[in-house]
Write a protein that binds this DNA or RNA. Structure first.
Lengths: 156, 156
DNA sequence: GCAAACTAGTTGCGTTTGCAACGAATAACC
DNA sequence: GGTTATTCGTTGCAAACGCAACTAGTTTGC
């Protein structure tokens, strides 16, 4: 993938760097007898500091199927990482909250990520890196609206 | 995923933006009766302008298992997108080359990507975007070496 | 030259994933 | 108030993935 037109390559770069980082981090991530996987950590990342999210919210923010999210959450629940409680005001939905173990898992992950992120960003200026994160966050936001609207404009 | 510490979030941002872009692009990508998927396009992207790559090379650059690559390439071959020819000098390996249809598929994908990338980068300065691509490419390179060496330093 | 070590690609197997259909609970409409 | 739509979560199913075992071809070392 030599440097040609950048625009067409964001999709491949993000997917590949994402897989690289996931692999390198997950192979270090045995935590109290639990071996999390990429989907698990993506969910935990959203739940840190955000009690009371619904499964649907997590499916949208992680860009994963709600069935996939349901199964991953069930695994995380039986591993003691989080709790799911049926909402009393709307008994269709379940409110999700990290347990203490879940918060410790997150701290553990952040700790393990340090070395990998250092080698990943060896020759990169902090300002450049911040710009990269900022751009990705805005791309994420821009496309978020696009994906949240399954069918609207051209339904005829 | 509100804006907290950026370093820990590159992994989630890349994975999510990658999935967003893959979804939005693939749903427009019916091409001459063939519906490519994310793995297919990742391989095609590497093969454009690069005749004679081996399956192993593609597995390393796309960060995918060689079995997965083998199966995806078989599908692409039977769809007429590429050809695999056993190397006469080393009959273990197969040299891969895009067909005319494969190159047309790539042009088609680039064409379809324009609109999506426009909305994705609406509020982003071109220089910022270039910096983002540049940083991602360097991260990719930095981690590439890390992954290509399965066991070396601490094998004791 | 021949056996051992290694490499490239294929295949089997269990897990994960997305899609679609379903059931339960709420909202909207008349 | 009761019927119809919608929404949230679960589950069945087929496809895709990673891992490991395997085959075939090549290289190394004696």
């Amino acid at each position: 993938m030599p440097g040609t037109k950048p625009h067409d390559h964001l999709i491949f770069l993000t997917n590949r760097v994402g897989r690289q980082l996931s692999r390198l981090l997950l192979e270090q991530m045995e935590f109290e007898g639990f071996l999390p996987q990429s989907t698990h950590m993506g969910l935990v990342a959203d739940l840190v500091g955000n009690d009371g999210l619904r499964q649907q919210d997590l499916a949208i923010s992680t860009i994963k199927d709600k069935g996939t999210v349901a199964r991953a959450l069930k695994q995380l629940e039986s591993a003691g990482i989080l709790m799911r409680k049926v909402d009393a005001e709307d008994r269709r939905q379940k409110l999700i909250r990290l347990t203490d173990k879940g918060n410790r898992l997150w701290q553990f992950a952040k700790c393990k990520a340090i070395n990998t992120m250092e080698t990943a960003t060896l020759d990169i200026e902090p300002t450049e890196f911040d710009t990269c994160i900022d751009v990705l966050q805005r791309v994420y936001q821009n496309l978020h609206q696009q994906l949240s609207i399954p069918q609207t404009s051209n339904h005829e």
